[in-house]
């Protein structure tokens, strides 16, 4: 769940370098340990290996998209309890419904409003901590 220094581990599945740069830096400053994976398949592998407290999943990804990766994480008893926040550009309507139906616990749109995303993350992390 967290590393030696007590930072909360989050897996961020994203293929855009600038998005990775910004969110890794901002979350890092707020006490998160961000592990990045560049596509859906790598995302699943990383989640299985690092057991994060939460997953941030971009929806349009190479190799395997975020919907499919989320579906697989939620089908696996070892990873199904890890909350997933789906992220997508809101150019596509109906994305929210599709993301939630794939098993995402919450959903947010780009451009990322950092404080809003943080609030969603905290909400899911608190819910996970007190079942």
């Amino acid at each position: 769940m967290s590393d030696a220094s007590g930072r909360i581990r989050v897996v961020y599945v994203e293929d855009d370098g600038d998005n990775v740069y910004v969110l890794t830096r901002r979350l890092g400053r707020r006490g998160f340990d961000v592990v990045v994976a560049g596509d859906g398949a790598a995302g699943i592998e990383t989640v299985r290996k690092t057991h994060p407290a939460l997953v941030l999943m971009d929806m349009s990804l190479p190799v395997m998209d975020g919907w499919e990766a989320t579906r697989r994480l939620k089908a696996d008893p070892a990873t199904r309890d890890i909350p997933v926040i789906g992220l997508s550009s809101h150019a596509m309507i109906g994305d929210r419904e599709v993301a939630l139906s794939a098993g995402c616990d919450d959903y947010d749109t780009k451009p990322i409003e950092f404080e809003r995303l943080l609030a969603k993350m905290h909400h899911l992390l608190v819910r996970g901590a007190t079942p």
Binding site: D16, D18, Y21, V22, L23, S89, K110, P111, I112
Partner: peptide, 8 residues
């Protein structure tokens, strides 16, 4: 890229 500019 616009999202990147806004984020940064």
């Amino acid at each position: 890229p616009l999202n990147a500019i806004l984020g940064i």
